[in-house]
């Protein structure tokens, strides 16, 4: 039972990841694909944050610093830092993607990938 409780988060994250891959692979609309990409990156972020947890730990903020040997009482700050970076990268990529979608829509007047590819071949 404990094994399941301890790993349930990983399972949910796996499902989230696969949902993102589904959207990326099977949706035809470019905007939906971009959203699926965000779902994938959110699942990765959740995975890292999950690694930073400790049972009963406090937020890693303490004026005056922590005494030696008490590290277990505070959450691991490193994954949070890394994921701040990953979030920002995701936002930046989404911004560039939206700019490209804007250009594509202005020229092809559609966001369905199959129709755009047809338009490109002509």
């Amino acid at each position: 039972m404990d094994a399941i409780a301890g790993h349930l988060n990983y399972w949910l994250i796996a499902v989230l990841f696969v949902v993102g891959v589904y959207g990326l692979a099977f949706q035809d609309n470019l905007l939906k694909k971009l959203m699926a990409l965000n779902v994938i990156s959110v699942s990765t972020i959740a995975f890292f944050l999950n690694l930073g947890q400790k049972v009963g730990a406090k937020a890693p903020i303490l004026p005056g610093g922590v005494k030696g040997g008490e590290a277990a009482a505070y959450a691991n700050p490193l994954p949070h830092t890394l994921m701040l970076t990953a979030i920002v990268v995701g936002v930046a990529t989404t911004g560039v993607g939206l700019a490209m979608i804007y250009r594509i829509f202005k020229h092809y007047h559609t966001l369905e990938e199959s129709e755009i590819l047809k338009g490109m071949r002509e």
Binding site: S41, T44, T93, G97, M100, I104, I116, M120
Partner: peptide, 23 residues
């Protein structure tokens, strides 16, 4: 105009690749 489509498709695949690496 064709470059935008190529760039966007590369963005989808490339970002997914980056995320896989991160995972």
């Amino acid at each position: 105009h064709q470059g935008v489509v190529a760039g966007f498709r590369y963005l989808l695949v490339g970002t997914a690749a980056g995320t896989l690496y991160l995972l």
